[in-house]
Amino acid sequence: MNDKKNSDAKTVAGFGDEWTRFDQTGMAEAETQRLFDSYFSVFPWDRLPANSVGFDLGCGSGRWARLAARRVGTLHCIDPSSAIEVARKNLAGLPNCKLHQAGVDDMPLAQKSMDFGYSLGVLHHIPDTQAALTACVSKLKSGAPFLLYLYYALDNKPWWFRAAWRLSDLLRKLISSMPHGLRYVSSQILAAVIYWPLARLAWLAEKLGAGVSNFPLSAYRNCSFYVMRTDALDRFGTSLEQRFSRAQIQAMMQAAGLRDISFREATPYWCAVGFTPLAEQENR
């Protein structure tokens, strides 16, 4: 019997530090809503039953849970790190949020009991992403949707873009090996001298009529500096990071038992939703 947990202790501790520093209270409500809408653009809210019960795996500070909870009956917010205490504070006014400090191996949910689930920007930080995804899907009822966001392998970008990313990944490996304090300071310097200038340059280029889809960090062109600071720590402060192509993500979702998979065809790449088979399909 293998008792080894599907988690990385250093990564979990890093996220606890990140969400304590960036509890998302410095983020404007309109920006939070805009980003939420982009991640959930393919999610079938209209197909959920009344008073639906679901889960957010890797809820972090609770920034997405705060908005999702308003549209469902009960939301189980699950995170293995100390960030669960940040989420507890941020979700205090939402009694339908049930918080659990747990990992993907020990989610306190019965098998096939959930009407929906989602995990955004989390499973690529788990050693065995496929096993983690399969564990999430196992909690869903038949016909239930699961929304997934994984870091993408830049499979829709030119070669030079991927080469630049490989250089940045060397820097990530260096920074993520530092103590939390130095990791934080280094990421904030990067946010100020790389994220902000490139994002604003992309914003200006777009205003002048240029295409910016392949411009480095153009996804941040309409984001606040607070978001850039948060994501710089998220990106460069995390020791375990995996990336997957669209084809790989689809194959993983299918292997986990999801059907009718569809992808968001815009940033953030790749967001995808799939459904567990209906009971009659399972018996075929």
Rank of each mutant, 00 (worst) to 15 (best):
A153K: 10
Y149H: 15
L148N: 08
P145G: 00
L148W: 10
L148Y: 07
D155R: 00
D169W: 11
A164H: 05
R166P: 00
Y152G: 12
W160D: 11
A163D: 08
A153I: 08
A164Y: 11
H180P: 04
D155P: 01
P179S: 10
R162Y: 05
L150Q: 10
R183W: 01
M178I: 00
V185R: 11
A163N: 08
Y152N: 15
Y152W: 12
R183Q: 12
I175T: 03
R172K: 05
L182H: 09
L147W: 00
S176I: 02
Y149C: 10
W165E: 13
L182R: 07
L147H: 03
W160M: 11
L148F: 06
L154T: 01
S176A: 10
S186R: 03
W159P: 11
S176N: 05
A164F: 07
S186Q: 06
L167M: 12
R162A: 12
L154F: 13
P158S: 08
L182V: 04
A163E: 09
W159E: 15
L147I: 09
R166C: 06
L147N: 02
P145V: 06
L182T: 07
K157I: 04
W159K: 15
L171H: 02
S176M: 08
L171Y: 07
Y184N: 13
L147A: 05
L148T: 09
F146R: 04
R172C: 01
Y152V: 03
D169Q: 08
R166W: 08
Y151S: 12
W159Q: 15
N156C: 03
A163F: 12
R172G: 01
F146Y: 00
F161K: 06
L154R: 12
L154E: 13
W165H: 13
S177H: 08
G181K: 12
F146K: 04
L147Y: 04
F161W: 07
R172Q: 00
W159D: 15
L170E: 07
R162P: 08
I175V: 02
K157R: 15
S176E: 05
N156T: 09
L170I: 10
L170D: 04
P158D: 02
W165R: 11
R183I: 03
F161V: 04
F161D: 12
A164R: 11
L182Y: 10
S168L: 14
L174M: 13
W160T: 13
D155I: 01
Y184S: 14
S177A: 14
Y151K: 06
P158Y: 03
L171D: 02
D155V: 04
K157T: 10
S177F: 07
R183C: 03
P145A: 03
Y151M: 11
S168A: 14
M178R: 07
W160V: 09
Y149S: 06
L150A: 09
L174K: 08
A153C: 07
Y151I: 05
H180M: 08
S176G: 05
D155H: 06
L174H: 06
